[in-house]
Write a protein that binds this DNA or RNA. Structure first.
Length: 318
DNA sequence: CATCCGTGGCT
DNA sequence: TAGCCAAGGAT
């Protein structure tokens, strides 16, 4: 019953898939893992250049493990959620020291790595090792919701029913299951998008339960992600300062930025000479965080290991 | 299980 | 333009 869907999606994927470097058969499992972690909540177009830099600089897990975690965070750049860089570095260390430099090829083995959850473990097992694994990401969930369940959007959180459905739809043989996973994911990314899906270009539009039902609206309103004034925004601004700093950033500089006292570009430059570029400091200052928020954010970054306290000030971890 | 955690392109 | 939202994971 699902054979028709399998054929349609696999054929569509064969001709319409984007030519992404981590899909190259010559890409190593390590390269696939790096791509999957970078792609967690970050769009492909922004990952591409950073992934290339990482692969050139750290072609094997052991190469990254030999670096300091701070270098990983700095090379992560502005991909967002920098703790992912930290966990990727930790995963590289585990791979280098406990797995002789080779990635585990089973879902369970992958799942044990830092920063690797259910999605990433299944994705690497499938895309790097050709295993039959049930990959469930936001794209696949959305396609399943529309195509099979007739809903405009998947539930707010992954449900057991969705896992069962994904497993039930997964082709039996390894090779087809890999193409199905990749194809459904690509379909969700390019055609069956969250907003304004391109149904006229969909290879399985005729089988879509959501279309058959007259494209009913979502049964709930997704709540947006708060940003302005949040700790995340302040943490991000602090991290940008630390990434741009070639030496520890004195606490007095950071603390001074939280005050209402205007800070001119001149003294900022003088205080942080050689330790940070002024655009990053200016951005943090423009946020005008309350002293307690700034303190809370710094404490959070220290607790997360994204920053360390030195006598000279705050810096990326060594 | 809900919340927290960055960033910037797109509509 | 202001929001929406993207190949999630950890707690």
């Amino acid at each position: 019953m699902t054979a028709k869907l399998h054929g349609a999606v696999v054929r569509w994927f064969a001709t319409e898939a984007r030519d992404l470097p981590w899909r190259d058969p010559r890409c190593s499992p390590w390269g696939v893992l790096v791509s999957e972690v970078m792609l967690q909540q970050t769009p492909v177009v922004r990952v591409l250049p950073v992934w290339r830099e990482w692969m050139e600089r750290w072609p094997r897990a052991a190469d990254l493990a030999a670096e300091s975690p701070g270098e990983a965070v700095r090379a992560w750049g502005r991909l967002g959620y920098p703790r992912r860089a930290l966990r990727l570095h930790a995963a590289a260390t585990v791979i280098a020291t406990e797995h002789d430099g080779e990635l585990p090829d089973s879902e369970d083995g992958l799942l044990a790595l830092p920063g690797v959850g259910g999605y990433t473990a299944a994705a690497v097992a499938a895309f790097a090792f050709g295993r039959r694994a049930s990959v469930v990401d936001t794209n696949i969930r959305r396609v399943h919701a529309r195509l099979v369940s007739g809903d405009a959007l998947p539930a707010p959180a992954l449900t057991a029913a969705e896992r069962r459905l994904a497993e039930a739809l997964l082709p039996d043989d390894d090779a087809t299951s890999v193409r199905w996973n990749a194809g459904v994911m690509e379909l969700g990314a390019l055609i069956c998008t969250a907003r304004s899906p391109k149904c006229s270009m969909c290879p399985v539009a005729d089988e879509c339960a959501w279309r058959a039902a007259g494209e009913p609206p979502p049964s709930y309103v997704p709540k947006g992600q708060a940003w302005h004034g949040t700790d995340r925004q302040v943490r991000g601004a602090i991290m940008a300062v630390l990434r741009g700093a070639s030496r520890p950033v004195p606490r007095v500089v950071l603390d001074g930025l939280a005050t209402a006292e205007p800070v001119t570009a001149e003294p900022v430059t003088a205080l942080t000479e050689g330790s940070a570029t002024s655009p990053e400091l200016a951005r943090l200052h423009a946020l005008a965080p309350a002293p307690e928020q700034l303190e809370r954010c710094i404490a959070g970054l220290l607790a997360d290991g994204l920053a360390v306290e030195l006598t000279g000030g705050l810096a990326l971890p060594h």
